[in-house]
Amino acid sequence: MPVGNTETLYCIGCGAALQTTNPQAAGYLPAARLAKVTDEDAEVYCQRCFRLRHYNEIQPVELTDDDFLRLLNTIGEENALIVNVVDIFDFNGSVIPGLHRFVGDNPVVLVGNKADVMPRSIKRGRVRNWLESQAHNQGLRPVSTVLMSAKKPADIERLLTVIDRYRGDRDVYFVGVTNTGKSTLINGIIKQTSGVQDLITTSRFPGTTLDRIRIALDDGHGLVDTPGIIHRHQMAHYLSDKDLKLVAPTKEIRPKTYQLESGQTLFLAGLARFDFVRGHRSGFTAYVDNQLLIHRTKLENADDFDTRQRGALLQPPRPDDLADFPPLVRTEFTPKEDSDLVFAGLGWITVPAGVTVAGYAPEGVDVLLRPALI
């Protein structure tokens, strides 16, 4: 049952109500630790958050997608400024389907986070225009679009200026899919405005924030961190914790260009595959994490090579993860304009107009074509 004689106490890391009865449920705190909790405690962490913060150890909890959506669905009933945080590197994997229906009449500020991992050759204005166009395709009409890195104090200051411009007499709700850096951003805001560091639990693991976390502002309103919506089409859900860094770049991407003849294949480790099926000799540029293995081979040998080398040369997946790793599914494209072939949560490869290519990704992970960002 929740702790506290007169009111429920909440974990400051993930927002879950603290309880002592079920170690597998959100907010669990051992009874011995509970006995030391007083109303004066400013920072109380559940066992899950304590282990995550100190040992980088994740414990699953009994929450469903419906639990997350139920919390998100109440936002339209609030009078709030909505700050929607997306991952620029993985827009398609970080957009919340139908968000425009959840927010009601509340204004939305769109934040393109992780701008620091995009190559400097990509002009910020072009990225911003592209991001707004993608948002419009999703039914969102943001009042402002901000490109930033949650790790840079100057970027946080710019965002705070935008929030102050549009907040008015409202709370500010931060929403986003898991792994967009939303809680990292709020931690940066808290540190910059109050000096308190790492108040909210953050990690690469999907689903860290489990309930609303409210941080009071001086005028009686607050910043509210909502649970990250779990997007099942993200590559992160198919990787072990050892390999999550490969789908969550932290350093500027160094694009790799390959001059390919028709009938050649690029393996993106064992996570995805790119076939040049038909067309004239062309350059294809891969935008993925700098540490991700890219291996070139002949298309006619690709299936056999995949069978022999998956879990060996082609890692991840690692040998211990092969049994649970989904099969790769093929999708073919012949773009009429220069495009990006996107592997959701992993990156993209540029494709010139008029050629035929095929993309493979784990079953359930989106492979799609979009107008070229570059």
Rank of each mutant, 00 (worst) to 15 (best):
I190F: 07
V175L: 10
T184L: 13
P142T: 03
V162S: 06
I163E: 09
L160V: 04
N187E: 08
H233Y: 04
H233C: 01
R141N: 02
L210S: 08
P142L: 10
A154F: 13
T180Y: 15
Y166C: 01
R165A: 08
H221S: 02
T145F: 09
I190R: 10
N187W: 13
L159Q: 09
I190H: 07
Y166S: 00
D198H: 15
L217W: 04
Q192A: 10
V196Q: 11
G228F: 11
I156Y: 12
P142M: 08
M235L: 09
V143W: 06
P153R: 13
T180H: 14
I163S: 08
G207A: 11
K242T: 10
V177L: 09
Y173G: 00
D211W: 05
N179V: 05
S183Q: 12
H237K: 11
R170Q: 01
I156H: 10
T202W: 00
V143Y: 07
S144N: 03
L185T: 09
P142N: 05
V146Q: 09
D219G: 02
F205Q: 14
P227Y: 11
L210W: 08
M235T: 00
R204C: 02
R167E: 03
V143S: 01
T201R: 14
A154W: 14
R214A: 07
V177E: 08
F205T: 10
G195C: 11
L147S: 01
D155K: 13
L217Y: 03
V143N: 02
D218K: 10
G188M: 14
L199P: 03
L217Q: 11
S194Q: 12
P142Y: 10
L217K: 12
T202C: 02
K182M: 15
H233L: 01
D225Y: 09
T208V: 15
I190G: 05
P227S: 06
P142C: 05
V172F: 03
T193R: 14
T178M: 14
I163K: 10
L159G: 06
R232W: 05
G181V: 12
S149G: 06
T193Q: 12
V224D: 05
I213S: 02
Y166Q: 04
